[in-house]
């Protein structure tokens, strides 16, 4: 436990000492949200079920997920740095289980993601979204689960890598499309059938949907709120399990 807490607090300490990272993970999505949201919002009208939802409001959930994705996943890059700079070897020979190492790292990175996401969540009123306390709590739960799952995914990718460039490549090839096909940019209901299938299989979709429910936009969501949270929980457990398996002793 102590070891998990130590590794967790180290992640937070390192994150907040690095101002560029704080700004770098928060600013781009906000700018995206405002520019893309404003631009697209006037070019297209939300069709069907989504009628009556302003695109800036619609895009808000996706932006929040993007912040969590950027922050959590980038935080796991520190595994590659830890390995290269040598810090990791000292952790690996310490008398702690690999589960503690995984949990310390993943919980640390996920907390960082959650904190960043919460900063943006505070801006909700600016977008005109009405956010009651209950909605806020659901949104926070969804973000926490999404952070955990995405961090776990990032950990799995980063564990075997020895260059941060490689990580960025995977990020662009794999994680960004996952975000694009999550209902962040366009609703599930208007997509062609094959795309709808891909979106349903994408765990990130359920993070976006859960947030849409929290923001009172349940009509555009992919699934019900309980199902979303269930899928996110399953996703987190699965990626954490994969992390522990990958990082098992003496590989």
């Amino acid at each position: 436990m102590r070891a998990i807490a130590a590794l967790w607090s180290r992640e937070l300490l390192r994150f907040f000492r690095d101002r560029a990272r704080v700004v770098g993970a928060l600013a781009p999505p906000v700018v995206f949200w405002f520019l893309i949201g404003s631009g697209l919002g006037n070019a297209f009208k939300m069709p069907g079920a989504a009628a009556g939802v302003d695109f800036l409001q619609y895009f808000f959930s996706g932006t929040l997920v993007l912040i969590v994705l950027f922050t959590s996943v980038f935080a796991t890059i520190s595994i590659i740095e830890d390995r290269r700079e040598g810090f990791l070897q000292a952790v690996l020979v310490a008398p702690i289980t690999r589960l503690s190492i995984v949990l310390g790292k993943v919980l640390g990175a996920a907390t960082v993601g959650l904190i960043q996401g919460s900063f943006f969540l505070v801006l909700t009123p600016l977008s005109g979204i009405d956010l009651p306390l209950q909605g806020f709590l659901w949104a926070a739960t969804a973000m926490a689960l999404a952070s955990l799952g995405l961090t776990g995914l990032g950990f799995c990718i980063a564990w075997k890598m020895d260059s941060t460039q490689g990580f960025h490549a995977v990020m662009n090839l794999f994680l960004i499309p996952m975000w694009m096909l999550s209902g962040a940019l366009f609703p599930h209901s208007t997509a062609p059938g094959w795309l709808r299938f891909v979106m349903s299989a994408n765990p990130v979709s359920y993070a976006v949907s859960a947030l849409q429910h929290s923001f009172g936009m349940g009509s555009v969501a992919l699934a019900s709120l309980p199902l979303c949270l269930l899928v996110l929980t399953g996703f987190s457990v699965a990626t954490l399990g994969a992390c522990v398996w990958l990082a098992r002793d003496q590989d």
Partner: peptide, 20 residues
């Protein structure tokens, strides 16, 4: 194996915690 972005003191503290 030092964490160069932590202080000397913090490096020792974190190491100690890893050892319980």
């Amino acid at each position: 194996s030092l964490d160069l972005r932590l202080t000397c003191e913090e490096n020792l503290l974190y190491q100690g915690r890893l050892y319980g």
